[in-house]
Design a protein around this nucleic acid. Sequence first.
DNA 1: GCAGTTCATGACACTCAGTGCAGTGATTGC
DNA 2: GCAATCACTGCACTGAGTGTCATGAACTGC
Lengths: 258, 258
Amino acid sequence: MSSSSAAPAAKPPMRDALVAAAFQLFLERGYEQTTVDDIVALAGVGRRSFFRYFPSKEDVVFPDHERCLADMTAFLAASGEEDEPVRRVCDAARLVLRMYAENPAFSVQRYRLTKRVPGLRAYELSVVWRYERALAEYLRTRLAGRPDGTLRADVIAAAVVAAHNNALRSWLRSDGEGDADAWVDHALGYVQTAFARPEPAPATPAAPVPTVAPTARAAPAGAGAWSERPDDVVVLVTRRDAPLWRMVRELEAALGRA
Amino acid sequence: MSSSSAAPAAKPPMRDALVAAAFQLFLERGYEQTTVDDIVALAGVGRRSFFRYFPSKEDVVFPDHERCLADMTAFLAASGEEDEPVRRVCDAARLVLRMYAENPAFSVQRYRLTKRVPGLRAYELSVVWRYERALAEYLRTRLAGRPDGTLRADVIAAAVVAAHNNALRSWLRSDGEGDADAWVDHALGYVQTAFARPEPAPATPAAPVPTVAPTARAAPAGAGAWSERPDDVVVLVTRRDAPLWRMVRELEAALGRA
DNA sequence: GCAGTTCATGACACTCAGTGCAGTGATTGC
DNA sequence: GCAATCACTGCACTGAGTGTCATGAACTGC
């Protein structure tokens, strides 16, 4: 019972049931050959419920990215002036790797699925783009005022994402057998050295792969994404025209319920 | 050549008519508020014809990217061993800029459209991704055999695309008034220097950064980098232990939705 | 226990993107 | 002239996504 049932709002099993049913059918007969009606029929729920939990058919393939993005945003927001910016975004990228590594079998299946289906590849791009934007926004604030601040922010963010994905895909192609952390450390190390030049701080060129920062989102309290210390309070900032389901999902993510 | 093949099959005017009608309606009432039926009605053609010229509604917004991608692929394929790889992909990226610069008014309109419509942003990502893959594939062959060849290829391609897009968007935000080439040259020059280091090629240290950095109107917005969007945002502050439904209710109240 | 409320779910109907198919009219080649 | 081809149109269909309402379970206060 590590994470289920315990406290206030019980985790809805329907969401997981839908993901399971969807993947069963996707692997059986393919993504495009599976309709939402097929999924809800197998899961034994109403069609409308599917779209209450997932805004689109594609979203059921990436059920945990929203949460991971919230973690990344919180991780970056918790950064201070003492953190080296490039290093910080590299560590933030490792959060994504960790999510993939938490369930290798699932990740490998999904990788093979997204590789085959153009629509899913396109959707994955939009997911990756949001990670990249989160990194870039952080870097923009950290590099503000410096020459070419936003340019460097965008380029470094793109490079970090590309390096991470290069290593991640290598690991996924190995069916989750290899050492994902080693690959990602190596890839991010390359980016760090490539962009360390304008900084005077290449004093520690070899060491800089000190593994992931704490964050241990296993701890229920530590997941308090927004509004760090002033506990007991949650602040949600969202676009007014965003769909309600997305606001609710962010809210849930901020609350640490999943 | 750039505009070759004028002779063979005369360009169908219907395609252009559809693009014109689509943009007229998109600008009038918005992208999502415009149906394909509206477009074909204004263009005075049958609905089925639309999908013969454009595989999807999104494609009508990017009518020339397919051609540009083909040009880029050809440009890279025509490269020889004597070309410096990073420089070559930078020049390839400039082909995209040229396409945008060929029709500034149209490009600016499209930029404003894609910035507003999430679906178009997502579609643009898939377009950009194809450019990036073309660059990365080229670099992979050129860097094959070298240590971390594919990693470096992916990272450099991503950096080039990010730099190009950063400059391109700066130009688009200036309503096509500024010197697009100067911005892109500067941005790509930064990438070239950043990745020129691991190479032993200090033979031409000064030359490879010919950059035209001037850019008279350096920062039109000054430091106000991203102070956009004051409105359109809703903020919810609530106690963490409040029931979820109550938070949602307050959210809905704040939104003005029943 | 009981009435009132809240909310998740399900059933229905609708819009719209995208596709397959058949029919029509014009052009081209013989 | 005749046949084949081509561009176009209309029609019907699938399937994703959305708004709306009814139901029913769980929780409220009494």
